[in-house]
């Protein structure tokens, strides 16, 4: 647990980190009159698990879309591992090693589970149009990719489904497949949008163990989650968004004790008896906001 990297970091919004993998400056996005995202400054520490929380509609998913090239901000700059990402198309962002998953699962239903996995692999010459015509050159690589996919499928308890169409998987299994597939890209920063939504509790537990293992191998993880128990358990650092702004950040203990955070959740309920924990109960089991 690299918690001590945060020893000298003050829990105030926009604070600098010792070794940031992701740096965001002034990124904002308007939809008509609505300001969905408006971030002054935000840094994500390399090699840690960073939780991103906030009430529904806070702009978490929109921020993911902006940072990964799936949406274009009205202004601002951001960089990943020293690479300026402004204006970069989504596929180039992914190739740099910053890979995201989706709140509404995007398993490719008409492809088999194994083909979904293989699609994630990089450096397959057979994906080029002329390379495709030289099977003896891509077959070796294909075997290598398949072996890597097997290991991941095993870990995500999907190995028995490898030859089924992904459309036959349950909602929770699709979430797992999407995460496993993203790992095939061999990212250095993985951005997960509610990866546990709809996954059963036992499996959530093993997923958490797995995500921690990824961190211990040196990967940086940012993930959006509504389940406070999960967030508090797994996060080294937590970012809190509300109404498009970064309103708080800090270690789990700092955030839990921060009145601004409780206000943000309460404000949404107009003074009803709601706590962040109640928020959790409501959103559990929902598979996205479709």
């Amino acid at each position: 647990m690299p918690a001590d990297v945060f020893a000298d970091v003050q829990p105030v919004p926009g604070v600098a980190k010792p070794d940031p993998v992701l740096v965001v400056d002034g990124v904002n996005r308007h939809f008509g009159g609505l300001v969905a995202v408006d971030i002054d400054h935000l840094e994500v520490q390399r090699g840690t698990i960073t939780g991103l929380i906030g009430p529904n509609g806070a702009g978490k998913t929109t921020l993911f879309n902006l940072l990964t090239g799936f949406d274009t901000p009205n202004g601002g700059t951001w960089s990943f591992s020293g690479n300026d990402l402004v204006g970069l198309p989504a596929y180039r962002v992914a190739r740099l090693g910053m890979v995201r998953t989706f709140q509404l699962t995007k398993a490719l239903m008409k492809l088999t589970v194994m083909d979904n996995m293989k699609l994630g692999a990089t450096g397959q010459s057979g994906e080029k149009v002329f390379g495709a015509l030289l099977p003896w050159r891509w077959r070796e690589k294909e075997k290598e990719i398949e072996a890597r996919a097997e290991v991941l499928l095993e870990r995500f308890t999907l190995a028995h489904m490898r030859d089924e169409l992904a459309g036959t998987l349950s909602g929770g299994q699709r979430k797992l497949l999407e995460l496993a597939r993203a790992l095939m890209v061999e990212p250095t920063l993985i951005m997960l949008d509610e990866p546990m939504a709809g996954v059963n509790p036992a499996l959530t537990e093993s997923l958490l163990v797995h995500i921690k293992a990824l961190r211990d191998e040196g990967m940086s993880v940012v993930f959006i989650e509504h389940d406070m128990d999960v967030i508090m358990d797994i996060s080294d650092w937590i970012l809190v968004m509300a109404e498009g702004k970064l309103i708080a950040e800090g270690g789990p203990a700092d955030v839990a004790a921060n009145p601004a955070v409780i206000d943000a959740y309460l404000g949404e309920h107009h003074g009803e008896a709601a706590t962040p924990e109640n928020e959790v109960v409501e959103s559990e089991g929902e598979d996205g906001d479709g």
Partner: peptide, 13 residues
């Protein structure tokens, strides 16, 4: 099936 999925995996759609 889903070009955003392909994009997110680094494919130049």
């Amino acid at each position: 099936e889903d070009e955003d999925a392909a994009r997110s995996l680094g494919k130049n759609v």
